[in-house]
């Protein structure tokens, strides 16, 4: 059948196949790299096996409501990072970004301690894809705490 096609049509079919193959390859690479390309560990990811304490890793999730406790030295704090399935206690010393809030997203850079807690030396605030004026956010407050 192909032999009866005009060269122009052959090239069209070929080009479309090439395009779909390329887009598909991108999608495949995306799913194949799922673990390697993850920016951070979620608490549930490390529930079974902790990354070794001498590895610099990131831990991401929501800051559990009511878990932030500032320590007496003025620069340290404890809080709990959760993803709804598991949670990890974190100790951080330093200046937190403005958007670091309870019930909001956070990515902590640091390392795990053998006891399963996390020692953070830097915090990044992670916000979600919802944007709204303050009045509206007040109205939907319960929904705002939905873990990602």
């Amino acid at each position: 059948m192909t032999s009866r096609m005009k060269p122009k049509h052959q090239r069209l079919v070929l080009a479309c196949l090439a395009l779909f193959a390329t887009l598909g390859a991108g999608g495949l690479a995306l799913s194949a790299l799922k673990d390697e390309a993850a920016f951070f560990y979620a608490p549930a990811d490390v529930a079974g096996d902790l990354p070794s304490p001498d590895r610099a890793v990131r831990l991401g999730g929501m800051v559990e409501k009511g878990s932030v406790h500032r320590l007496g030295d003025g620069v340290s704090m404890n809080f709990v990072v959760t993803d709804g399935k598991a949670s990890v206690p974190v100790r951080f010393t330093g200046v937190a970004p403005d958007l670091f809030r309870e019930g909001s997203g956070v990515v902590a850079e640091g390392h795990f301690r053998p006891d399963g807690s996390f020692a953070a030396d830097n915090l990044l605030a992670k916000h979600d894809e919802r944007y709204m004026p303050p009045q509206m956010a007040g109205k939907m407050a319960p929904e705002m705490t939905r873990p990602q």
Partner: peptide, 23 residues
Amino acid sequence: VAGTILLPVIRYSVIWWNTLHQG
């Protein structure tokens, strides 16, 4: 044509990988 491989990666990176960038 080959460069289009990046378009699905960029589009779905925030859905399929956990990222700092929001969804």
